Simulated scan of single mutants.
Amino acid sequence: MPHTQTPTQPISQYFTLGRSGLRVSRLSLGVMTFGTEWGWGSDKASAQAIFDQYVDAGGNFLDTADVYTNGTSETWLGEFVRARNLRDHLVLASKFTFNLGERNANMGGNGRKNILRAVEGSLKRLGTDYLDMLYLHAWDQITPTEEVMRTLDDLVRAGKLRHIGLSDVPAWYAARAQTLAEWRGFEPVSALQLQYSLVERNIEHEFTRMGTELGMGIVAWSPLASGLLSGKYKPNEKHEGRLAIMQGSSNPAFQYMTERNWGILAELEKVANEIARPMNQVALNWVANRPGVASVIAGASTPAQLASNLAALDFAIPAELVARLDAVSTPVTPFPYYFFTNAMQGMFYGGATVGDKPAGYRAPVLVSGNGAGVA
Rank of each mutant, 00 (worst) to 15 (best):
S301F: 04
T128F: 06
W286L: 08
E74C: 04
A319P: 10
T143A: 04
R125N: 07
D52K: 01
A174Y: 03
R87F: 04
A220K: 10
Q13P: 03
P334D: 01
F186S: 08
L22N: 03
T330Y: 11
R117P: 08
P223S: 04
E120H: 06
P331Q: 05
N104P: 01
R157E: 14
F340K: 12
G299E: 00
R277F: 07
T212C: 08
A47H: 03
G121W: 06
L325E: 11
G121L: 11
I11K: 01
D140E: 01
F339Q: 12
L310G: 02
N273G: 15
H137S: 03
D356F: 11
H163F: 11
V199F: 07
F186E: 09
V354H: 11
T353R: 12
G108I: 00
Q345M: 14
T4Y: 10
V31S: 02
V365I: 15
T6P: 14
L306I: 00
G18I: 01
P334V: 00
T258W: 00
N289I: 04
W221A: 03
L22S: 06
A175L: 07
L268N: 05
D129I: 09
F348D: 09
F15V: 14
G351F: 02
Y338Q: 10
A276K: 15
S73P: 10
Y135S: 00
I218L: 15
Y54M: 01
D63L: 07
P331D: 05
T258D: 01
D63P: 11
G127T: 07
L224S: 00
T302L: 05
A171D: 11
E74W: 03
A191L: 09
R103H: 08
Y68K: 00
P278Y: 00
R82H: 14
I50D: 00
S167F: 07
G35E: 09
I317G: 12
S167C: 13
N202D: 13
Y173V: 11
Q13S: 10
T128L: 06
E269L: 12
L100E: 12
M344Q: 14
A307E: 03
L180N: 01
D52Y: 00
R277A: 14
G241K: 05
T143D: 08
